[in-house]
Design a protein around this nucleic acid. Sequence first.
DNA 1: CCTTCAGGTTAACGATCGCTAACAGGCTTG
DNA 2: CAAGCCTGTTAGCGATCGTTAACCTGAAGG
Lengths: 199, 199
Amino acid sequence: MSIRTDAPTRREQILKAAARLFAERGFHGVGVDEIGAAVGISGPGLYRHFAGKDAMLAELLVGISERLLSGGRLRVAESGDDPDALLASLIDGHIDFALDDRPLITLHDRELDRLRESDRKLVRQLQRQYAELWVTAVRRLHPAVEEAEVRAAVHAVFGLLNSTPHLGSQDDGRPERAMTETLLRKLAHGAFGALAPQD
Amino acid sequence: MSIRTDAPTRREQILKAAARLFAERGFHGVGVDEIGAAVGISGPGLYRHFAGKDAMLAELLVGISERLLSGGRLRVAESGDDPDALLASLIDGHIDFALDDRPLITLHDRELDRLRESDRKLVRQLQRQYAELWVTAVRRLHPAVEEAEVRAAVHAVFGLLNSTPHLGSQDDGRPERAMTETLLRKLAHGAFGALAPQD
DNA sequence: CCTTCAGGTTAACGATCGCTAACAGGCTTG
DNA sequence: CAAGCCTGTTAGCGATCGTTAACCTGAAGG
């Protein structure tokens, strides 16, 4: 958990602005001039940093997917052999991500089809591997439940956790955020808990 | 629950096709020529039925919101005074809707900002009223939980139920659908059940 | 049988889009 | 100090978009 202190590069400024704009108005709903204006340069100036508008979206989506997967793998490695602790850790990590990067969460399942075939396949593969981490973890807790059902449940819980953008408008102070975090954690555990057969 | 037997009007054909295309590629990602082609006419022919592309999206979003709200109100009225039965009924109704109209579910929280101010306000108001039905129902079951928390939980469960489009590609036979229905019901009840304080 | 009209067609418009070309200023570096 | 790159600018091209205009056709109705 290292914290960045140096100033963001121009590339990073652009990516952040593009993520916000794409999430707000959709990939096709945002022009390159607006993205440029959001970082204080004009539209064509962006082409000094990216090959095109598509490349910005691709880098955003590949980036999120990679960060999610590597974070998940780290948690799997750190969890020892405690399945409960692993699932809790995956949930907490996903919540942190959803609360920290709301625009990216929105893009993640909304603009995937706007990518070139190769990028789209890559992102989907990363997403699938991330989801498989969850499926494996949940199956260790509920071995009697069919794998297909667990997989569907995992995606449904993703939907629950990714509902963050639809809640509070932006970031109200920290107490609000801690409350949301606690709530989402409770709901996610409750949902998975309901997977157990006859209780 | 009456079943339509008469053929769909051209307007309805167009709306259905537009819903699917908008959900697949985004409002700005679909041209009027494509919508027309999907129903066997050419682009400008659509203007005999709709004032413009915006009007199609508006009618779709207002229509969904109204159907959701009226369906919810019906269930409230039918539930007698049984809070458990009411919540179960709301959940079942929402699941049916999500499974029957996947493209509309996708549009519902994705393209709202592409509407004219007046339509957007109307849709948001309908959505809010629908969500309030849920909040009231859940609060009757968990009176000790703060209203803001219940409201956030309701939206999170919407996210869970609306994850349907991300599951199976299209409609595989009916057994698959019944399984998904059962699973989502279980997960939603589990999530709300976790709202109860100290258990 | 003639009129009307609903529901299509194609052509073409203005606007906007992503992107390239051509150029310019300011650091860095040999 | 000159050369060259890094990062920006403006002008403008070609494509595409939503929409309108003008025209056509078949069926209904008096």
